[in-house]
Amino acid sequence: MATAEAATRLVGSDRVLAVLKELAGYADGATLDELTKAVGGPKPTIHRALGSLRRAAFAEQGPDGRYRLGDEYLRLAFDFHEARPDHVRVRPALETLAGRFGETTHYAVLDDREVVYRAKVDPPTGAVRLTSTVGGRNPAHATAVGKLLLARELTSLAEVKAWIGRTPLPARTANTLCTAPQLHRELDKVREQGYAVDDEENEPGINCLALPVHALSSAAPSGGVSVSALAYRTPLRVLVGRVAEVREALGPLGEPR
């Protein structure tokens, strides 16, 4: 949620976007008072921002007085998501892998210090499903996909240090690699083996195997496909032992163009 201090600096369209972003966190809708408290700023100002969103059909107010995301906003978001060629092309491989492994599969891309999930397929039946969502984010250094894609961009210790900068990397679990030397050694290993793993580094009890995807017309990976598994059910050594199976499922998408 935005802080009151940050909200006081929001003007015009910035304020409207801040309200829109906050509203997306309330699946059951939010009152004007709730949004005012969350975003900060005077209530009439937040009300005017909501008015702008309602005129664009990006927000709506129900009979209960609560504000929700509008159908037009959802239509645009889903139309844009479904039109992404990488998402459309990768999904069959995700479905194949989810069925074979009985675990959740993802397709994600790198966005600076985070990965963004563009597609997700849960196992067909009988398995615990992960809470990750399309559009959700996780720290790149703590995820298999993130490390896979960082390995191409950060090829020296100096580059890793510059990427970390003055903002310490968060330790999501006791296994998270947070220092520049640790991450540099891991990225070297990723480049050598051609895949990356997450050994319960982002979430306790969850491990992951990731391989690159070349869904677009560039030699650089457009993103990565991961198999995310409950560690007690599918140990990391089992995932790593089936790397060839993941490559086979990806087919041409797993090969540079």
Rank of each mutant, 00 (worst) to 15 (best):
A6C: 02
R9H: 06
S13Y: 12
R15N: 01
L17H: 13
A18F: 11
L23D: 00
Y26R: 05
A30D: 00
T31V: 06
T31I: 10
E34W: 07
G41N: 03
G41I: 03
R48E: 03
L50Q: 05
L50T: 09
G51M: 04
R55A: 14
A56H: 09
A57H: 12
D64P: 08
D64N: 12
Y67V: 10
G70F: 13
L74D: 08
R75H: 13
R75A: 14
A77W: 11
F78C: 07
D79I: 10
R84Q: 11
H87N: 07
R89D: 04
L94W: 08
E95Y: 04
L97D: 04
A98C: 07
T104K: 04
T105G: 07
T105Q: 04
T105Y: 09
A108M: 11
D111K: 15
D112S: 10
R113A: 12
V116S: 06
V116I: 15
K120Y: 02
D122I: 07
V128D: 06
R129N: 06
T131L: 12
G135D: 05
N138P: 00
N138G: 12
H141L: 13
T143L: 14
A144K: 00
A144Y: 13
K147C: 06
L149I: 02
L150Q: 01
A151C: 03
R152E: 15
T155D: 11
S156N: 04
L157K: 09
A158K: 12
E159P: 00
V160G: 04
A162E: 15
R172E: 13
T173I: 09
T173N: 12
A174Q: 08
A180F: 04
L183N: 09
D188A: 10
V190K: 08
V190P: 03
R191T: 00
D198C: 15
D198M: 01
N202G: 15
E203A: 09
N207G: 01
P212G: 00
S218Y: 13
S222P: 00
S226V: 06
P235V: 07
V240T: 15
V243C: 03
V243Y: 03
E248Q: 15
A249L: 01
G254T: 08
R257G: 15
